[in-house]
Design a protein around this nucleic acid. Sequence first.
DNA 1: TAGTGGTCTAGACCACCTC
DNA 2: AGGTGGTCTAGACCACTAC
Lengths: 257, 257
Amino acid sequence: MNKQPKYRQVADVLRREIANGDFPPGARLPSESELQQRFDASRNTVRNGLSLLVSEGLISSSQGLGYEVKSHEVFELNASKFENLNFPQNGDAYNTNVTSAGRRPHQTFRVEMLPASEEIADRLKVTAGTKAVLRFCHRYVDDVPWSTQATYYPSWLVDGSPRLAEPGDIEEGTTRYLAARGIEQVGYFDEIAARMPTPEEARLLEIGAGVPVLLWTRTGYSAERPIRCTITTFRGDLNRMNYEIGDLTARSENEPQ
Amino acid sequence: MNKQPKYRQVADVLRREIANGDFPPGARLPSESELQQRFDASRNTVRNGLSLLVSEGLISSSQGLGYEVKSHEVFELNASKFENLNFPQNGDAYNTNVTSAGRRPHQTFRVEMLPASEEIADRLKVTAGTKAVLRFCHRYVDDVPWSTQATYYPSWLVDGSPRLAEPGDIEEGTTRYLAARGIEQVGYFDEIAARMPTPEEARLLEIGAGVPVLLWTRTGYSAERPIRCTITTFRGDLNRMNYEIGDLTARSENEPQ
DNA sequence: TAGTGGTCTAGACCACCTC
DNA sequence: AGGTGGTCTAGACCACTAC
């Protein structure tokens, strides 16, 4: 017989009850003192069990309020359509995407000049420490922090396209601005990873324990060389990505996607 | 002045020292009692701080041994090449992939018949509860659990291709087996998500706190309809995915990928 | 004011690993 | 045997939210 520690039993029972629907998304769990009595355990043991569920992303807690079952509404991002190679969207693909889902987008924006990190330099095929331009977006949906997006341009490119380094928005979109100056993106290399947020990321995206981030790194290429590197950091609990590959006429037929 | 709680200070200091390289990957942290003295804190407070770092995926602990800084070796999976639409690889794309990286692959395998869950039924465009065939792989690299892969086939497809439901391996690969029977995959729909593992996933993949899973759901289509749905569950700390889109001749030029 | 979770302490005993 | 982390307890005080 494999005896589980008491705090795991607490977590297991509550996890099952949540899965059962005894505590639907948004519902509040019994208070710690109620659970102490129910499980005949000390407060710390109960808290230990609850913190397990928190770190699984099932519940969250707030001082003075209690523990609440989290609800999972996800936003789907089509990475193969997001910037169509043949029909680059104007201005802001993100705004279009969010608005068409009936949500209210909002973003803050800044531009910086800084030395390229190893990670960026690698992808842009420049020497680490070379100056690069960073255009940084912090994005919200209905006032909830959603993702951050950092796009780096190599300095050689900025020399010929100075508006990249200017703090303002580029009305027609950076892709079009560059295309008009003879820099055409013909391909992308996408990398996708998942990990727990750094404290900085947790602050920007307002995520507590138990929520991973989804990292999407897109390196854009002209026919000759890499011209930009975009790192998007998503809240893992609110976002999903997808790619369409090959012939998917059978998919769209019966499903008004 | 924003006073942080003591356990956060403990975590912050140690996090910085790890980032600094004072404790390189694989190194052991000072013991809890040493940290108690250093930070003039109770054991529980020190443990609280350490558990923060554990849940960030920075360190791990084992009874009798201590806390160890985790090292991050990642395996990169090219999802756009993994099963090439035009040149389907034979047998086992996974084996090829791992072996070519100089690692030793190993997998267990089983076949089941079960009612399709809502999630699967949706993607296969069948009614939830309809029978489906599940071919399940549990994959290891150098004896470390790496990923699980569950492929579901709709029962109408199995009727004409009975070997799918047989427990043995399909020598030439399921894709080729199906193609030979007139079922050709012409497109894929990929979905990617990240979340914390369920207890079951944590058990199969042997992951502790602080490691998310990367979920890759690939639905394969013939010209007429979906013919399979594959859900791959990766350890987030050991895997990264990538996609190549468009013309990337500029990428491969200077880089022997 | 009462009830909730957040932080912290001190001490106990157990399970595991190394020597 | 001695050191490590794992589990558990009992009690204290603080911070936030509701009423």
